[in-house]
Amino acid sequence: MNVRLALLISLASIAGSAALGCGPSEEPYKAKPAVSGKKAAMPAVPTLPQKQKKTPDGAFTVWGITHDLRSKVHFEEVNGKPVSIVGYVVKTNFESAPACAIHKTGKGDPPDCKAPIPTFSIADEKGETKDVIDVMGWASNFAQVYTLIDAIDRSPKGKEGEAKLADEFWGAELPNPIPNVGAKVKVTGNYGVTFTKASSGAASNPKYGIMTAEKIEYLEPPPEKAYLPGMKKKP
């Protein structure tokens, strides 16, 4: 390489470096001002209700046991198992009792008389109509219910709670007073998807289950006596 060529290369390198260093300098970062105007209204974070699975004495709530019935993890722990459930009586099927089924024990219903099994439903809150558990097995038919109501009404004043009646088919004593809307009860028995105690067939409720009562304890008595259609109410 001759001296002239080396000089040209050196000058070209210097010129390139100068060209790179003479460009415009970058603008310094400037923070953008906060957005002015009305702020968006955001809804408050909802507070989810703290539902209890069991009561302090170990009995299930209606929400607690129906949750477990629908759970793949806990289903086998409650289905067909003896448990206690606490709840308010929110409805009965007494009004659906046909006239042919309302009579004293010892007399059979006519062959064409179709009557449901006496049932009441419990929930965690008064007035609830959806999340409920049907309670069956405490009376085999409406004749049993009629007879006990009549016995209570005929009892001397102050002795109504002493009236007793053992179910002529299932053997267990009926609850006194007869369950009615507004009472708070603790029901002990067998809980599960199906109720098979009736001879006429099995009832089923896979979502909420059915309680077959063996014992009914009143935590709060019903505000009014229960009566069947057509029965004269005692003053």
Rank of each mutant, 00 (worst) to 15 (best):
I149K: 01
K107I: 12
P82R: 06
A59L: 05
D150P: 00
Q52T: 11
E95F: 00
V90D: 01
A143I: 00
G64C: 03
K54M: 12
D68A: 07
A198G: 07
V181C: 05
K159E: 15
A12R: 06
G16M: 15
I133R: 02
K32T: 13
A183M: 06
A151W: 00
V62M: 05
M1E: 13
A198I: 00
W170L: 09
E27V: 14
F195P: 01
K215P: 00
A31Q: 13
A213W: 07
N2Y: 08
H74S: 12
S25K: 14
G58N: 05
G230Q: 11
S13T: 14
T61F: 01
L7H: 07
S84A: 15
H74V: 01
S71L: 06
I133W: 02
K30Q: 13
N93K: 07
V181T: 10
G106I: 02
A59I: 00
L165W: 08
G230A: 12
Y218P: 02
V132R: 01
K164W: 07
D134I: 02
K53P: 00
P28H: 08
P175V: 08
A12E: 06
I117L: 11
A15E: 10
A101H: 02
L8I: 13
Q52R: 11
C113G: 08
S200N: 11
V86G: 00
Y146W: 12
K104L: 00
V3T: 14
I210K: 01
K207A: 13
V35A: 15
A34W: 09
G230Y: 09
A139M: 04
Q50L: 15
C100M: 05
A97T: 03
P24E: 13
P156F: 08
E95I: 08
K225D: 14
E162W: 03
T212W: 00
A18N: 07
A31D: 13
K197W: 03
M211K: 07
P110F: 00
K186E: 14
P56M: 06
S84C: 12
P49V: 01
Y29T: 10
G161T: 10
I85A: 04
F94C: 00
G201F: 09
L48E: 14
F195D: 04
T194S: 14
P177K: 08
P206W: 04
K184Q: 13
E214V: 05
K126S: 04
C113P: 03
V45P: 00
I122N: 02
A143N: 11
A123C: 07
E224K: 15
T47Q: 11
A143D: 07
L219Q: 12
E77T: 15
K126I: 04
S25C: 08
V185P: 02
I102T: 12
S10H: 06
I65C: 02
Y208Q: 14
K215W: 06
T147S: 15
P116N: 11
K107T: 15
N205H: 06
D124W: 05
F169G: 00
V62D: 04
N2E: 13
K186G: 07
E160R: 13
A34G: 05
P110H: 03
H74Q: 12
V193Q: 11
A213C: 08
S17V: 14
E168V: 13
K72V: 09
I14Q: 11
K54I: 10
D68Y: 07
P179K: 05
G80Y: 06
A40E: 14
A18K: 02
K32N: 13
E26A: 10
V89N: 02
